[in-house]
């Protein structure tokens, strides 16, 4: 997995320009998220891509030609912290299974954020690996609905991506 972070000017259509380029040049991205940053008028796009080094290098080079992109770089997983949020609604009508689920949630350090007679909605934050592992466990109970945010990431240490 490669993580690419881009700082872009917050202007209408920037996200379109980014996704249009990714589609046109035939790159495959797994996740993409966008949100505000510490600077007004600057947004941060974080995406994850699979593929070999040369694919990622070409993607970064092509994206960096979009004039709205102020800064773009690959964040190596080893030099960065990254997290994803997932919300998982699990079917839990049976009290015994319900307590199994609650145990797993504790082990994975998730939280229950909504509950009903038949279901639990769980908030899980972590690396995609951790979330996937948790999802595997939940499959046995029946996942009713799942929503994931995609990754956000920051480089480790005191430096900022914009430097």
């Amino acid at each position: 997995m490669h993580i690419i972070a881009a700082l872009v000017e917050d202007r209408p259509g920037v996200m379109f320009k980014v996704t249009s380029l990714i589609r046109r040049r035939g790159f495959n991205i797994d996740t993409i998220t966008v949100g505000s940053t510490e600077k007004e008028g600057v947004s941060r796009i974080t995406m994850t891509v699979r593929g070999d080094e040369s694919v990622v290098e070409q993607l970064v080079k092509q994206l960096s030609k979009i004039p709205d992109i102020m800064k773009i770089s690959e964040l190596k997983p080893s030099d960065s912290v990254y997290r994803e949020l997932a919300m998982i609604k699990v079917s839990a009508p049976d009290p015994a299974k319900r307590s199994d689920i609650l145990n797993y949630i504790t082990i994975f350090r998730g939280r229950v954020i909504d509950a009903s007679k038949d279901s639990l909605t769980i908030e899980m934050v972590g690396s995609p690996k951790k979330i996937n592992a948790f999802l595997d466990l939940m499959k046995g109970f029946g996942i009713v609905e799942l929503a994931r945010t995609g990754i956000v990431a920051l480089s480790r240490g005191s430096k900022s991506t914009s430097e």
Partner: peptide, 15 residues
């Protein structure tokens, strides 16, 4: 703007 984004260096609307 949408149509020409993939075939321009840049396409934008003046608002």
């Amino acid at each position: 703007v949408g149509i020409t984004t993939p075939i321009t260096k840049y396409a934008f609307q003046v608002t």
